[in-house]
């Protein structure tokens, strides 16, 4: 293991970056999907339904490959219009992969958020109206906090899925932990040691995210506990 610690550390940082960026995209996709499904517009509903059906039924690895190679083909074609000598253009694997896993998990989050918004009690909304709150105020101060509490437990699982899906980005060439393990194996000849370290780092990540979810749930349910 000596000599490889710093490589693993940098790779773990890359994974953390992918996780944070994909988390932001995942929430955006999930909220937009839920908004579309709950809207009264038929086309918006149809698009959101197609989105969830497609991405919940397709293997994550296929989505990663599709986004990376698809964007490369499109970019190269566009690039050639301006400069015919261009051979190959791609978006960085980091971003292709981040958006790919966010799209997949966002499809699951769409259903979570939709259900949670439907779970907001009508009485709260009516009370807000009676107090003279505007639609936006009701959304920000009533709907979001109430929905958030309901969505948290499945949302924690979605975050765990994101952590684990980051491993897939190695197949389009992102230099993360599996990449380091492969390199380390070729010089040390100890594949088990090198890959088990990756597993342990992922386990640490998952534990951290689980702990974070529990803390968030504890915080979100604080009004239900007896005052001390």
């Amino acid at each position: 293991m000596t000599g490889w610690w710093d490589d693993y550390l940098w790779a773990a940082l890359t994974v953390a970056k992918v996780f944070v960026c994909s988390l932001v995209f995942m929430v955006v996709f999930g909220l937009s999907g839920a908004a579309a499904k709950l809207s009264s517009s038929k086309p918006a509903q149809a698009v959101a339904n197609a989105y969830t059906v497609f991405f919940r039924g397709t293997p994550e690895i296929l989505v990663v490959l599709l986004l990376y190679f698809g964007s490369a083909v499109t970019l190269t074609a566009v690039g050639r219009l301006f400069d015919p000598s261009i051979r190959f253009l791609d978006i960085p694997p980091f971003w292709a992969g981040t958006i790919a896993i966010a799209l997949v998990v966002g499809a699951y989050a769409t259903e979570t958020f939709r259900g949670a918004f439907l779970g907001v009690s009508p009485g709260s909304i009516e009370a807000a109206r009676a107090l003279g709150m505007s639609g936006l105020q009701t959304f920000v101060y009533i709907r979001i906090p109430e929905m958030w509490r309901l969505a948290l437990p499945p949302f924690g699982n979605h975050m765990l899925s994101l952590v684990k899906d980051t491993a897939l980005i190695s197949i389009i060439g992102l230099e993360e932990m599996l990449f380091v393990a492969k390199q380390a194996t070729s010089t040390t000849g100890k594949p088990f040691t090198m890959y088990i370290v990756v597993g342990l780092i992922y386990l640490a990540f998952s534990t951290l995210v689980t702990g974070l979810t529990m803390a968030l749930e504890h915080h979100a349910n604080r009004h239900l506990r007896a005052p001390t």
């Binding site: 899906d165 599996l178 990756v198 597993g199 992922y202």
Partner: peptide, 23 residues
């Protein structure tokens, strides 16, 4: 359950396929 649910399947596949022949 904790270990297998907390790590990516891809990593598990690599540990088994590339890793175990070390022994």
């Amino acid at each position: 359950c904790y270990v297998f649910r907390g790590t990516p399947i891809l990593v598990q596949i690599f540990i088994i396929y590339y890793g175990l022949p070390q022994f």
